Simulated assay, not measured.
Amino acid sequence: MAQVPQVPELTPQFCFNTLALRDFLRISRGSIDDSITQNLNALQAPSTTGFDPSSTGVRNPRGPNPRRIDSIPCQNFKAKVLFPSWQVRSDVLNYCASVATSPDPDDPELIAREVEGQRYKKRIVDERLDPYSARFFPKEPRTEMLASVIRQEIGVESIIRASSWGLVVERCGGESGDWEKALGAWKSGLGFSKAGRSLNAS
């Protein structure tokens, strides 16, 4: 069975290092969601009875879904691998979203932007000579850049989860087609993580 990727240490520095943030998300998605078909195939137990030569003499119709997986392995996979990996990614994205909307006094480029703004105010602008001279594009604060990355990744996450859940429903059966409801039901049964963080914030 696939393993849930290790939770990174959640710090503002981790979030602002968007390369590390995206690497974590890529590795997590790659090991669980991008390989969901292989993960589900691994849940199917091989035949325990062996091959019966007499079975070739009778033509038996196939069942409605020969690829259907037993409910117990499916439940274990969802409860121990799929939902925990989704929740870890939600925790990371939620944390970094809060960092992106918090004051950032440690921004290393804060002073440079302030100096740039002061220089702009002191400039002499003559749009008759240069119609573009009044344009000013200050460098975007790193919190805004992080917020943009988080919005993109949340959108990607929603698409990936819908795709993975569709395959889980197809192979395991007996489930709602809405991954958000299924994840919410899992979280409500779990309550709190071992670390004491509430898992009820998606």
Results as ranks from 00 to 15, higher is better:
residue 3 Q to E: 14
residue 5 P to A: 03
residue 6 Q to N: 10
residue 7 V to N: 07
residue 10 L to D: 05
residue 11 T to L: 01
residue 12 P to V: 03
residue 13 Q to M: 06
residue 17 N to D: 15
residue 18 T to V: 15
residue 18 T to P: 01
residue 18 T to C: 05
residue 20 A to T: 07
residue 21 L to E: 00
residue 24 F to K: 06
residue 25 L to N: 01
residue 25 L to G: 01
residue 30 G to D: 00
residue 30 G to F: 01
residue 33 D to P: 00
residue 33 D to Y: 12
residue 37 T to W: 02
residue 43 L to W: 09
residue 45 A to V: 15
residue 45 A to G: 06
residue 51 F to A: 12
residue 52 D to M: 09
residue 57 G to E: 12
residue 62 R to Y: 05
residue 63 G to I: 11
residue 66 P to M: 00
residue 66 P to H: 05
residue 66 P to Y: 04
residue 70 D to M: 10
residue 75 Q to V: 11
residue 76 N to H: 06
residue 77 F to A: 02
residue 78 K to E: 14
residue 81 V to W: 01
residue 82 L to M: 09
residue 83 F to S: 05
residue 85 S to R: 01
residue 86 W to S: 03
residue 88 V to H: 00
residue 93 L to I: 11
residue 98 S to Y: 00
residue 98 S to Q: 07
residue 98 S to F: 00
residue 99 V to Y: 01
residue 100 A to V: 02
residue 100 A to G: 01
residue 101 T to V: 04
residue 103 P to F: 08
residue 103 P to V: 04
residue 106 D to T: 15
residue 108 P to K: 03
residue 109 E to F: 09
residue 111 I to Y: 07
residue 117 G to C: 01
residue 119 R to T: 08
residue 119 R to F: 12
residue 123 R to Y: 07
residue 125 V to H: 11
residue 125 V to M: 10
residue 131 P to E: 08
residue 131 P to W: 10
residue 136 F to K: 04
residue 138 P to T: 06
residue 141 P to Q: 12
residue 142 R to I: 05
residue 143 T to N: 12
residue 143 T to S: 12
residue 145 M to E: 10
residue 148 S to M: 10
residue 149 V to M: 02
residue 154 I to D: 07
residue 156 V to R: 09
residue 167 L to K: 15
residue 169 V to S: 08
residue 171 R to F: 11
residue 171 R to S: 14
residue 172 C to W: 05
residue 174 G to V: 13
residue 175 E to M: 14
residue 181 K to R: 12
residue 185 A to S: 13
residue 186 W to V: 05
residue 189 G to R: 14
residue 190 L to T: 11
residue 191 G to S: 08
residue 193 S to R: 13
residue 194 K to N: 09
residue 195 A to L: 07
residue 197 R to K: 13
residue 197 R to Y: 10
residue 198 S to C: 02
residue 201 A to M: 09
residue 202 S to W: 00
